[in-house]
Design a protein around this nucleic acid. Structure first.
Length: 245
DNA sequence: CGCGTCTTATCTGCGATACT
DNA sequence: AGTATCGCAGATAAGACGCG
């Protein structure tokens, strides 16, 4: 069996795991985790049926925009598709330079919703578990509905059923940096379980599942790395060794 | 008219990839 | 291996907008 085949296959199984993770999240936050519950039509075309006891809510009524500035000494945060909202200096792969004057940065409190308006269509939005400040090129919202559990909302906002819709309500010329239109976003509808305890159950369920899937992905990534290194050493020998064109 | 906010396009640094 | 080019993830400047 040649190395390239193994690498390709491992790579594919990682992709499948990632897809499974996405659909598991989407399924859980729109259908719940009890398969025996009675369903009803949500009226939202990209969602379809939802549990009967869930409620559809409009962004405008559960989020309120916040733009608090002049806290230049707070921790600078950054929003990642993969990691959510984290302190910017906790990663070395962010090459963007923080402005020398952070007084126009927006203040984020714990549990605030942060949206990268240019990358929302890729799922670049989430609920922060940190307090800090972020570049003014983001939208910051506060949750004003006390029946919504912030960690549940985090999964809901990022679930992939909504990505096409985010893309649709974004506009702009530069490829890959379409601007999410705030007004359109505020019109979006999301389904929620009525009780926060059910929201918490779903979050716990997802956290556990995702941890398992992520560690599987990690293992496979390591396998690929090892194989790539082996392949490189072969190529190196070929190129520097007795090769003649 | 002045000022703050929003929009838009351009800019950036470096890892990844392609090629030789 | 060494070099050249691409692409990612996001920051930011500057003009447009709009409010009192």
């Amino acid at each position: 069996m040649n190395i390239n085949n193994i690498i390709t296959q491992t790579y594919q199984s990682i992709e499948e795991l990632k897809k499974y993770k996405q659909s598991l999240i989407a399924e859980s936050v729109t259908k719940g985790i009890d398969p025996n519950v009675e369903m009803k039509d949500s009226g939202i075309e990209w969602i379809g049926m939802i549990p009967k006891h869930w409620t559809i809510k409009k962004v405008k009524y559960f989020l309120s925009e916040s733009s608090v500035k002049n806290y230049p000494n707070e921790t600078v945060l950054s929003l990642y598709r993969d990691y959510g909202v984290i302190p910017k200096d906790s990663r070395t792969d962010n090459h963007n330079v923080t402005s020398s004057d952070t007084s126009s940065y927006k203040l984020i409190e714990k549990n605030d919703v942060v949206i990268n308006k240019m990358k929302a269509w890729q799922g670049s939005l989430g609920v922060s578990s940190f307090k800090g400040i972020i570049s003014p090129a983001y939208y910051v919202y506060k949750i004003i509905d006390s029946d919504i559990y912030s960690n549940f909302l985090h999964y809901v906002l990022r679930n992939n059923l909504y990505l096409d819709e985010y893309r649709r309500i974004s506009s702009g010329i530069r490829i890959g940096q379409w601007d999410l239109e705030k007004k359109e976003f505020e019109k979006l509808l999301y389904p929620f379980p009525n009780s926060t305890s059910e929201q918490q159950q779903i979050v716990q369920y997802l956290d556990k599942k995702i941890f398992t899937i992520d560690s599987l992905i990690e293992d496979k990534t390591k396998v690929i790395e090892e194989l790539e290194n082996y392949k490189k050493s072969l190529i190196y020998e070929y190129v520097t060794g007795k090769k003649e064109v």
